[in-house]
Design a protein around this nucleic acid. Sequence first.
DNA 1: CTTGAACCTCCAGTCGCTAGAGATTGTACG
DNA 2: CGTACAATCTCTAGCGACTGGAGGTTCAAG
Lengths: 171, 171
Amino acid sequence: MTDLSIGELSRRTAVKVPTIRYYEQIGLLPAPPRTEGRQRRYGSDHVARLGFIRHARELGFEVEAIRELLSLSAAPERPCEPADRIVLRHLEGVERRIAQLELLRSELRHMLDDCRHGQVGECRIIQVLADHDLCRHEHGRMESGAPARHARRGSTRFPVMAGPDPAIPIR
Amino acid sequence: MTDLSIGELSRRTAVKVPTIRYYEQIGLLPAPPRTEGRQRRYGSDHVARLGFIRHARELGFEVEAIRELLSLSAAPERPCEPADRIVLRHLEGVERRIAQLELLRSELRHMLDDCRHGQVGECRIIQVLADHDLCRHEHGRMESGAPARHARRGSTRFPVMAGPDPAIPIR
DNA sequence: CTTGAACCTCCAGTCGCTAGAGATTGTACG
DNA sequence: CGTACAATCTCTAGCGACTGGAGGTTCAAG
């Protein structure tokens, strides 16, 4: 009805033009009719559907989840419990991610707090990175028997990325 | 010295074999010497460097940041301020991400709270997704003049992904 | 010497876009 | 009506940080 070009649709929904074409390609937005010159022309139903998609993306839903939500929304008389479950699952993922990031935040803050802001040699940041055991929190699991908290104190030395060394076959 | 195969290195550092090869490819881990049969053999310095990399990745640092941290760690007598800055920048990113996710979390919770768990037709979840204006928080910016809070109440109907419609050129 | 696990290289796929090349179409103006 | 030029078209490749597979070789134990 409204007969919008892809650029107009983009402006109205705040979704970029290549993204709209991408959504069509992956089957999230139906292919619209075309002009004789094969340019896309959209109606108000496309505006609504694309708005739905954009909002769901803003809320962090994955494309697959959006696909399901869209197909659920097409059956208003059916129970909305499947939709609830999708949202709940996503909420749980967001909560897990927040918890992870909060751990990260506190470890990063500790690293900065502990750093005396002197030389790299005494820098707590570099030390903690070099030796996982020095950090205040455990954020990975340590399942197996303690792997010998070796007394590598002092200089942190790794093989340095030098020019292509001769690559002598050993042994 | 320790002369480890890539599988052994993988076990000791908890970094997967293809990931180790990938780190070599992108120049994060130096290419080790090879056996006559061109298999990689690693020493304890590689174990240390790869441990550094893994820990930094666990803390969410990007590869480019790790590259910088590694090259900083090679100069123990220099000031550690550049390292501090990298960590601080990353911390700020983490904090921004947390703030975003907390907004998301609260909006998702509201959606679930408001849903009467009946039919899709009255489902608050679907309604909020279909009409951005219904949500409790603003998480995008709304710069331009209000785009006509249209009275599309009731059925949420989009063009449905059907079979390939005839694609009649219009106009 | 044989077996088979581990290793090798190379390439493709993941996710959700984004950007570019090079060709065509739509539209406004003179 | 012609022309200019913005917008559109298709196609392909790239991002980041891996991960997986195919198909072939090497190592180490028995």
